[in-house]
Nucleic acid binder design. Sequence first.
DNA 1: ATGGTAGCGCTGCTA
Length: 258
Amino acid sequence: MRIATWNVNSLKVRLPRVEEWLAYASPDVLCLQETKMSDAAFPTMPFQALGYEVAHHGSGRWNGVAIASRIGLDDVVAGFSHAAEHDTVESRLLSATCGGTRVVSVYVPNGRAVGSEHYAAKLAWLGDLRHHIAATCGPGDRVVVCGDFNVAPDDRDVWDPARAHGGTHVSDAERAEVQALLDWGLVDAFRLQHPEGRLFSWWDYRAGDFHNHRGMRIDLVLVTRPLAERVSFALIDRNARKGKLPSDHAPLLVDFEL
DNA sequence: ATGGTAGCGCTGCTA
């Protein structure tokens, strides 16, 4: 099984690239973030034409998450399992069962600046995510929680921790929330395959950051141990960040021997 | 040197 995640920063603009990448990378499941569109505007047919069922949770110009699968798409749930303050309006979470694996597509709030109300909301959202996972899955189940976490798990995941993003994405409190997900029973599949790699998944559009290797690894595929034991390959496809009209994120794909 | 670009949508917000 090959599962991938990609923050596309507008699916309307990125659809041709997504179609091209699906044909090229051929994932069984693709999670998308930042579609920036309503459910009514979602382009279902191009996905169907490539053999994918697709579910989308989006309300308009911001956020929006989707799951495309060619191995089944059942028990689709938008938002948190519990009454959370943020998600149903913000369209940042979508869950579905694909070929016996529970797949969760997440777009964690950015946080903007450490100490701001947005930063507090980001920490609360990550707490809600952990609650959602623990309430709906067990660590012995096949579970994939993937997407744009807007957190670089440790200093290997940032080009320069001191200059990163005004302190967000690298703060102790954000990293503690990601660590709490790992403590529950999730494993960072990319890091498992690349223990020393300083490879990034996001680069600011500005100032030539991509070409100057100033990025962060903030897009993660977290998996429970039954899946972690079967990871055979993990790749951040930097080529998909090149050329005309790229997203500011590269897709991440992980293979499992299932 | 503390900048810069991109997307949405039409003014400034979000990232």
